[in-house]
């Protein structure tokens, strides 16, 4: 009995001229897993993610995301994944409802479906009272959860979170991770990149990329044992220094 696989990479490689940005990375992510993708700046994380979300073609190797080939079916991948980043997510000068409707439209949802989704998101996040407020007026924690919900407005199998928690209020951050747990529990795969090592400890498994290669991949618990470290921060320092 095999667990369904959400992401499968086999020696996925990206070269820019002589420079190997991503060097034959191989791993699998299970359906419903929270997978942390870590690496220092310049390690090749962004290049790898661009290939996974269908924005950049691999030079060599194979990659499948949500069952589609990253090389030959990038458009299908884009329709079947969600993406949220700290830098770009919501329109501050649109209301909560307008943001939901806008993204629903972008993903080509029907009018009825958008209506249904709007009600669902507002109720689930308890945002009904502020549905007509501009997003800019919401507290950071609400904005983050709204952006997360909107990134899944088209019910993707996998959602990519690119540095999702820029703000570092310890409570806001925990609230957000709870939302991530909820989503994963429903069987959706969550792929998270972050450079905050303490956040890595919330993931089911994490990979650490150094100079284009995956240098470590396991549960946070096992990695800490393997590197005789008390925190993921220490694991990372031992690998990256």
């Amino acid at each position: 009995m095999n667990t369904p696989i959400a992401i499968e990479l086999d020696k996925l490689t990206k070269r820019f001229g002589d420079f190997i940005a991503v060097d034959a990375i191989t791993f699998k992510v299970k359906k419903g897993e929270i997978f942390g993708f870590l690496g220092a700046n310049g390690a090749g994380k962004t290049t790898a993610i661009k290939m996974l979300i269908g924005l950049s073609k691999p030079t060599e190797g194979m990659g499948k995301v949500a069952g589609f080939n990253v090389d030959t079916e990038p458009e299908k991948i884009k329709k079947n994944i969600g993406y949220m980043s700290q830098k770009f997510s919501l329109y501050d000068d649109l209301t909560v409802v307008e943001n939901i409707q806008f993204y629903g439209g972008i993903y080509g949802l029907s009018r009825e479906k958008i209506k249904e989704k709007t009600t669902e998101i507002l109720e689930e996040l308890e945002l009904t009272e502020v549905s007509k407020s501009l997003v800019i007026s919401l507290p950071l924690g609400w904005k983050q959860r709204l952006a997360f919900a909107i990134s899944m407005v088209h019910d993707p199998e996998i959602v990519f979170l690119d540095e999702p928690t820029g703000g570092v209020d310890p409570r806001v951050r925990r609230q957000f991770w709870e939302t991530i747990y909820q989503v994963a529990e429903k069987g959706r795969t969550v792929f998270v990149t972050t450079h905050y090592m303490d956040e890595a400890e919330y993931c089911d498994r994490v990979s650490i990329m150094v100079a284009g290669k995956i240098e470590a991949l396991d549960t946070p618990h096992n990695l800490k044992q393997q590197f005789e470290a008390t925190s993921m921060d220490e694991v990372f320092l031992k690998l990256a220094r």
Binding site: E178, Y181, Y202, M232
Partner: peptide
């Protein structure tokens, strides 16, 4: 929701 809990929060794993 337990009676003995004052607070419970996730800390990584």
């Amino acid at each position: 929701v337990q009676n003995f809990t004052e607070s419970v929060l996730p800390f990584g794993e």
